[in-house]
């Protein structure tokens, strides 16, 4: 039996959106996956991500690598910020 997966939308910004050529990705992750596991999965698909110090936001707040993802979470990849 297949493990339960959640489909997530991942919002992309600035240099990440530029490299991806897209404003968002959709990925399926196993239920209970962590941010670190998602990062690894994304880096497998997009090796250039390994060169970038990106942070993850979950539900519009910075997330630790150990944060577990739940169905419906809003995810975002944040390259180094440079506002002001």
């Amino acid at each position: 039996m297949a493990a339960t997966t959640h489909s997530h939308r991942i919002l992309l910004f600035a240099g990440v959106a530029q490299r991806a050529g897209a404003r968002e990705w959709r990925v399926d992750v196993a239920a209970g996956s962590t941010v670190a596991e998602l990062r690894e999965e994304l880096a497998r698909r997009h090796p250039w991500l390994r060169e970038l110090p990106v942070a993850f936001a979950v539900n519009q707040a910075l997330a630790a690598p150990t944060t577990r993802l739940a169905a419906g979470d809003e995810l975002a990849l944040l390259p180094p910020v440079s506002g002001g």
Partner: peptide, 27 residues
């Protein structure tokens, strides 16, 4: 704001553009 706000600045040059803090984004 400079440290924490999720806002990004792109410098547009005559011959291209790059996101600040992400020099490899120059194209």
């Amino acid at each position: 704001i400079k440290e924490r706000a999720p806002i990004w600045k792109q410098e547009q040059f005559r011959d291209g553009a790059a996101w600040v803090g992400d020099p490899a984004s120059y194209e």
